[in-house]
């Protein structure tokens, strides 16, 4: 396919699908973790809940945009998956721990 050939890296269909999956779903997971951790930490630091929720979502959307672009720019697809899925899980874990320390 000419579209795959346009990519600057060796990209058979499966690899391309893995990259798109990393950008979309990995990016979402990472952003979720970022927003949850951000909201919980800012709330713990004394910010109003809805303020913390808003601020972390707004920043989290910019984070999503950044990691989305990065996933297409990087050559290291495995690293992208590890950072996005692993980092997302880690951040979500932080959010739950912070919540548990408050409630």
């Amino acid at each position: 396919m000419s579209n795959a050939a346009m990519l600057p890296f060796p990209a058979p269909r499966l690899r391309l699908a893995a990259r798109i999956g990393a950008a979309v779903f990995g990016g979402y997971a990472f952003s979720w973790g970022f927003i949850a951790a951000g909201a919980a930490l800012m709330f713990k630091a004394g910010m109003d809940f809805h303020d913390a929720e808003f601020l972390s979502s707004a920043l989290g959307l910019l984070v999503f945009l950044t990691v989305f672009l990065w996933t297409f720019a990087t050559r290291r697809l495995v690293l992208a998956w590890v950072v996005l899925a692993g980092g997302g899980a880690l951040l979500a874990g932080v959010a739950s721990l912070v919540q548990a320390s408050i409630v």
Partner: peptide, 16 residues
């Protein structure tokens, strides 16, 4: 975002 895309306040951070 808070209603549909990342509803952390209604799900993961419901207790907070």
């Amino acid at each position: 975002s808070a209603t549909y895309f990342f509803p952390v306040g209604h799900t993961q951070l419901h207790d907070l």
